[in-house]
C-alpha cells in the first residue's frame, strides 16, 4: 500500500497586533503520513490545532511552514492554476461539521449535487449527471425523489449530513477529510453515518481522515489514531494501543474524562 498523503513539519503561526505582536502557535511542526485506504483519526480538544491542520491539508489555509505532499506533489508549491486545483479538489475533499451552514439555503439539493460536477474534467450530459446523482443518494440510504427538490432547511441534520456524504460518493475522491461529521447529529444516527464512511472505504477504496474530539468515535472507525494537544501530535497508535495503553499523560487524562456507559466515576 502506498502513501498518498505526507505531512512534514507543518506549522501555522498566527500573529496578532500591529505594534506589539503576539504569536499564537496553532499547529506546531506536525508530521505524519497516510497510506491509501487507511482510516485515521486526528483526536484532540478545541484549540488543539486539529481543525487548522485539516484546513491546511484541504488547501483552505496557507501554512506558515512545512510541506504537504499529496501523491508526491507539494500541494502548496507544485499546484498552480485552475486545472491543478481542480485536480486536487477532485481527489481531496471534505465533509464538515455543521450540515446547516455548508449549504446555500436558497439552492435545492439537486443544485448542490450538480455543482460537484464542476470538479470533473470530463463533460457529461444531463441524463448521465442525473443518474449519477441519484445513485449517489441511494448509496447513502436516501430516496432521491424525496430529497432532490428540497431545500436544505427542509431536511433534518442527519439527512443533510447524508447528502454531504452522497456528494463524496459522487466525486469519489481519493482522500476525504471529515471534520467532526457527527457532532451535530443524534447518537442514534451516528453509527449509521459512520457505517457510510466504512462503506466508502470498502467499496471505493477511499482514504479517510477524521478530525474529532470524540475518542469513542475514533476508537471504532479508525485504523490509527493520532492525539493532538496544543498543536503537536503527542501520541500515535492503533485504537487498542491508545485506549488500553496510553503513554502520554494528556492521553491518559483525556481517556479518564470520557464518561463510560457501563461504569460511573462517582458510584
Amino acid at each position: 500500500m502506498s502513501t498518498i498523503l505526507e505531512v512534514k513539519n507543518l506549522a501555522k503561526i498566527y500573529e496578532i497586533g500591529y505594534i506589539r505582536k503576539r504569536q499564537i502557535v496553532a499547529v506546531d511542526k506536525v508530521s505524519f503520513s497516510v497510506k491509501k485506504g487507511e482510516i485515521i483519526s486526528l483526536v484532540g480538544e478545541s484549540g488543539s490545532g486539529k481543525t487548522t491542520t485539516a484546513r491546511m491539508i484541504l488547501r483552505l489555509i496557507k501554512p506558515t511552514s512545512g510541506v504537504i505532499k499529496f501523491m508526491g506533489r507539494d500541494i502548496w508549491r507544485d499546484l498552480r492554476g485552475g486545472s491543478d486545483l481542480r485536480w486536487y479538489w477532485r481527489n481531496v475533499n471534505g465533509v464538515f461539521q455543521d450540515p446547516f451552514s455548508s449549504f446555500n439555503p436558497t439552492h435545492r439539493i439537486r443544485d448542490f449535487m450538480y455543482r460537484a460536477f464542476n470538479l470533473f474534467n470530463e463533460k457529461l450530459d444531463r441524463d448521465t449527471k442525473e443518474r449519477l446523482v441519484r445513485e449517489a443518494l441511494q448509496m447513502v440510504g436516501l430516496i432521491p425523489d424525496e430529497v432532490l427538490n428540497r431545500r436544505p432547511f427542509e431536511l433534518s441534520g442527519g439527512m443533510r449530513q447524508r447528502v454531504m456524504i452522497a456528494r463524496i460518493f459522487l466525486i469519489r475522491p481519493m482522500l476525504v477529510i471529515a471534520d467532526e461529521p457527527t457532532s451535530m447529529i443524534d447518537a442514534t444516527l451516528r453509527l449509521g453515518i459512520l457505517r457510510l464512511f466504512s462503506k466508502l472505504r470498502e467499496e471505493i477504496g477511499t482514504t479517510i481522515m477524521f478530525i474529532t474530539h470524540d475518542m469513542g468515535l475514533a476508537y471504532y472507525i479508525s485504523d490509527r489514531i493520532m492525539v493532538m494537544y496544543r498543536g503537536k501530535i503527542i501520541e500515535e497508535g492503533t485504537p487498542d494501543e491508545i485506549v488500553n495503553n496510553p503513554k502520554h499523560e494528556y492521553t491518559r487524562n483525556l481517556l479518564d474524562s470520557i464518561p463510560k456507559l457501563y461504569t460511573s466515576w462517582f458510584k
Binding site: T188, L217, Y219, Y220, P239, P259, L261, T263
Partner: peptide
Amino acid sequence: ALMFSILTPEPEVRKRVEQTGGIAGE
C-alpha cells in the same frame, strides 16, 4: 436501540458494535 448506539471506548460496547447498533429512520 439507544443504548446500542452509544460509542464509548469500552470492551462491552466494542463487542456489540460489530453486530448491531443504530436505528433506521428518523
